[in-house]
Amino acid sequence: MKRLLFAIGIAIPALLQAASAVGFRVADAKGAPVADAVVSLTPLDGPARLEPPTAPVEIMQRGQEFSPYVTPLVAGTRVSFPNRDTVQHHVYSLSKPKKFELPLYAGEAKEAIVFDQPGIVALGCNIHDWMSAYVVVLATPWFAQTGADGRAAITGIPPGRYRAEAWHPRLGKVESRELDVSGPPAASVDFTLALKPDRRLRRVHSAVPGGYK
């Protein structure tokens, strides 16, 4: 109760001071916009209050691929893995924040998985090597994902000091910098990411002849 009051005590001034927005622009070394990058603002003045959604977030398997490819969420969020394919899948993760497997199944998975530790979780399918997806577990409610134009916006941010971070599957380690959010006008953060080459396996759809490549 005391903690709750404390939390309200922080939240109320923030609300009073009017929430701000931060725009992000993420590009690679060549200046091309980067999609599927996850940007987040982690408060430095004190831990943010996390409210995981009550309904599970869905990462489905369709066309022998995961969808979506990158899923950012706050720690504690439940994720369901429905199989919308005609073939079975065997979803697994060997990543430290969440190790799990959903043995070979078709249709709805038996259980939803709770991602309670912040960090990057890489998902795979034991049957299909080319299937790959990422769950970005965050310790802050202020995050967003860039679109095809490399832009994303986070709104409703209380003023304060934040660590702005950007992550992408082709980025070795998280990019971060400090940011003061002090109300309108909206702040803007540009990230230039040194992306590694795309090494994703791609599914070869039909068995084409030609062994040597």
Partner: peptide, 15 residues
């Protein structure tokens, strides 16, 4: 079949 397809990529044997 789809698993075998995955193997073709893994092994480099087209069939």
């Amino acid at each position: 079949s789809s698993a075998l397809q995955s193997y073709t990529q893994r092994v480099g044997a087209p069939v």
